[in-house]
């Protein structure tokens, strides 16, 4: 049985991470993380660590682009790509749909 991550669940989990683990107050699904000034260079590293822990993926230098990490939607698409290409070791049950 194939399982694929649900886009909305992933987006909600990413949003929760930004709010509750990175403490980005006021962030919404539409917030541009860089232009808003909410996240800086150190914040990106923290975000990568949180995404790796939360979704079991690995973020590498080849993944880096401003477009990928500009808002919740783009980050979610990146996470889903990673999960679908097998980057996730154990997909948390709350971000997959059978």
């Amino acid at each position: 049985m194939n399982v694929s991550p649900d886009r909305q669940d992933v987006a909600q989990t990413v949003l929760d991470c930004l709010r509750n683990k990175l403490f980005l107050d006021g962030v919404t699904v539409d917030t541009h993380l860089i232009e808003s000034g909410l996240i800086d260079s150190v914040g990106f590293i923290r975000m990568f660590v949180v995404l790796e822990e939360e979704f079991g993926i690995e973020v590498t230098a080849r993944d880096l682009s401003l477009e990928r990490f500009q808002n919740v939607g783009s980050i979610s698409r990146f996470v889903i790509e990673k999960l679908e290409e097998g980057g996730g070791s154990e997909m948390p049950v709350d971000v997959v749909r059978a």
Binding site: D40, S41, V42, F44, I45, F48, A61, L64, S65, L66, F69
Partner: peptide, 14 residues
């Protein structure tokens, strides 16, 4: 230092 990834996203090459 931690600025590296953000710099790569801003057009730097490693």
């Amino acid at each position: 230092q931690p600025a590296g990834p953000a710099m790569l996203m801003s057009g730097w090459t490693a």
